[in-house]
């Protein structure tokens, strides 16, 4: 019961006494309630669940995790994969 999607905070405002942000997912935006995450700033990524930001994405931790995974020490050839790459380069091509 826990679908949570990361999006980027584009702007903040107050309405009915509650903090809200416009958050961008891909190329669309949605209003998100900030009451559980009052200190986020424009440019932060937040995890959104049922219209509420519940966690601020920690960029440093994300980098650390991906770096650790990259060091698993297996290259593409060893995995029997094409040298062609996945998401990032595919997006560049699009």
């Amino acid at each position: 019961m826990c679908l949570g999607i990361p999006g980027e905070v584009m702007s903040r405002r107050t309405q009915d006494g509650l903090g809200f942000a416009t958050v961008r997912f891909g190329s669309i935006e949605r209003e998100v309630c900030l009451e559980c995450l009052p200190d986020v700033k424009v440019g932060d990524f937040v995890l959104v669940h049922v219209g509420f930001a519940i966690s601020r994405l920690d960029e440093e931790e994300a980098r650390r995790t991906l770096a650790a995974l990259a060091e698993l020490g297996l290259d593409r050839a060893e995995l029997g994969l094409d040298p062609a790459p996945s998401v990032a380069e595919k997006e560049d091509a699009a």
Binding site: I5, P6, F25, F45, L74, L79, L81, S86, V87, A88
Partner: peptide, 20 residues
Amino acid sequence: MRHLDEYRDRALAQALAEQI
């Protein structure tokens, strides 16, 4: 989409499966 696509990467997934 940032913080999403990185974690659907085929090469990373295959590397993890191999490591397991």
